[in-house]
Design a binder for these strands. Structure first.
Lengths: 213, 213
DNA sequence: TACATTTTGTGATCATCGTCACAAAAATCC
DNA sequence: GGATTTTTGTGACGATGATCACAAAATGTA
């Protein structure tokens, strides 16, 4: 379900609780963006203007196989997973929890339809930035380009680290790696998804957990 | 060994062969950049100005564990490998062949020392772009930022595909994947490196190849 | 060419992971 | 709150990949 921000804000005085959480959400977005590149207040307002508050119920899709990628969801609550169907099996390759930017980069960059799916694993909320509006933002100022570049540098570095982990560790150590580096995933995500994420069978992960007790 | 481009160019009239290959190298760079974002002639010249022609003998390092990352090598000849030492084993996680930009993104973005190594697997040549000069370029025009962003989008997408391949395929199919998608790697790279790249033991890869004859 | 070094192949063995089948537990839904 | 669906656990088994040790081949070098 969509809310344009101004609609949302105009409805806010009714509920202090919601106002508070919306403030928090906006601050989280601001802080997160600033970790990559500092925007001016004016620029951040421009960013906010094209951000629509969106909620996704558990099992709802942000993106589905065969569809075009319509943009990015900055997650303020909940968690999403990205998976691909390979030989009738759902292979999860990314998770997006709070303060992450959920999207599928290949279809976002190329504007071809995607062969991947992004689904809400729990009830999820966040700011949705439309691809078309994002592209306009990129044209407006070097600041937004720089922000995009730095975010991508960070993501690529992370992805590279993850790949290294996969190729160099055996299954049990991969799980331990998650425990240490991404404990929030283990709490929120069904272990069958986690198993595919680290490239092992569901049953094997189940046994690894038993052994570790 | 380094050559500033102008020095190199001034020395060129002596050898037509080298002039030709230098022309080819420059065209390759131009074409490659334009695949991501079209630079104006003026912008491309600015890019060329900060590019130094560099040669690396086989086994020479572009980057070593503990060092700062000084920049990017656009490869015009040869091939390099990026590896990390994990439990006394060299895990190769990237290869850079002709028309690739060889660097290690984490240390390039953060300017911390790197814990990875980039080594020439065969005699290698290319244009080296210093990190400091690259940053100045980013400040000069939105065009360079956009180029950087688009290149990173492409790399992230590729890396994501590779991760998916790793988690979803069994060893034999991973090798077949390389055969199909990166045959140039199989020709140029010792199979012990390839084995670590796809997360299997050297001996296993040797047996896979025998089975496939 | 001969020697040294590096890379690749191969056999034997062991450990471990994947698969199938089914049970138990947990979550979801009227 | 009981029934249905989904998720997780577990046993048995077979397949396969890792490891160690060594041989062969290829490559580099004097």
């Amino acid at each position: 379900m969509f809310f344009f921000l101004k609609q949302y804000l105009s409805a806010l005085h009714k509920t202090k609780v919601r106002l508070r959480s919306m403030d928090d959400a906006i601050n989280l977005l601001k802080t997160t963006l600033h970790n990559f590149h500092k925007l001016t207040d004016k620029e951040f307002k421009e960013f906010l203007k094209i951000s629509e508050y969106k909620t996704l119920a558990k099992k709802e899709f942000l993106l589905q196989n065969g569809q075009y990628n319509h943009g990015i969801l900055f997650v303020t609550k909940g968690i999403l997973g990205l998976y691909e169907l390979i030989n009738t099996k759902e292979i999860y390759t990314s998770f997006f929890s709070v303060s992450n930017f959920a999207t599928e980069i290949s279809s976002l960059a190329s504007q071809n339809t995607s062969n991947k799916n992004i689904v809400a694993i729990s009830n999820t909320e966040g700011f949705f930035i439309k691809r078309t509006e994002l592209l306009q933002l990129y044209d407006k100022s070097i600041s937004f380009e720089r922000l995009g570049r730095k975010l991508l540098e960070h993501l690529l570095s992370e992805q590279h680290t993850f790949t290294t982990m996969l190729t160099s560790l055996k299954p049990e150590d991969r799980y331990k790696y998650l425990l240490e580096h991404n404990p929030e995933l283990i709490q929120q995500i069904p272990i069958q998804y986690l198993a595919s994420y680290i490239g092992i069978a569901r049953e094997t992960l189940s046994r690894i957990r038993r052994r570790m007790l």
